[in-house]
Amino acid sequence: MSLLQVEGVGIAFGGIKAVDDVSFAVKPGEIVSVIGPNGAGKTTLFNMISGIYLPGAGRVMLDGQDVTGLAPHRLAERGLSRTFQNLQIFQAMSVLDNAMAGHHLRERSSVLADLLGLPASRRRTRATRASALQLLERVGLTRAAFREASALSYGALKRLEIARALALEPRILLLDEPAAGCNAVETEEIDRLIAEIAAAGTAILLVEHDMKLVMRISGHIVVLDHGVKIAEGDPAKVSRDPKVIAAYLGTDAAAASREEGADADG
């Protein structure tokens, strides 16, 4: 059974359909990528799945249960976590505190205990701290742990967001352009990191522009253009799809490729 199922979701802003009738599914431990030209509606789709926008149509199913319109923090409780295309880092906090904040659901306690600094509260903080340090090691940020987050490079912040999202021990992780703005070395690190996360059993839904990365790690690809799903399948199938080529290269190229196909047929 699929872990995440998106069924005909759509949303319109001021009468313009940003996403229209998109459906696809993600199985446990699978890496699924959503690709498409700029403005295709990928981030909007993410925002609907993660509860930030309420879809105008369709439903989102997590584990066979309808979670459409559930608040993000409720989705987090159900094991869905995400990162952001435009970084959403807790700037004024240390790198370690950022990673620790990701543990919120596991360390939740009573406000009174926290105010009084009761042993239970302090124990939780210690446990969180140990776990956060491990996560930072996993994404290669151990040495930056005590620096203020705002002092980090862009690529490092991208990894910090992944660490924070992983702190929830999610069953599905939504990554919105994790490699955007990263250099080749950083992209490779993120590539390795995503593969590791998936290998550990977390399903991943990925929006990414770096096609090499997408083709290399995805098990399944969904292609959006102008808010509509125009193709889906494994990387090999999608990369040959004339509609996908048209969306990326413009209609001339698509026409050319169709003619080629016709020639071959003839």
Partner: peptide, 13 residues
């Protein structure tokens, strides 16, 4: 965290 980014705070629960 919610001071830094409400959206991100929500997504971590």
């Amino acid at each position: 965290a919610l001071h830094g980014s409400e959206v991100a705070a929500r997504t971590v629960g």
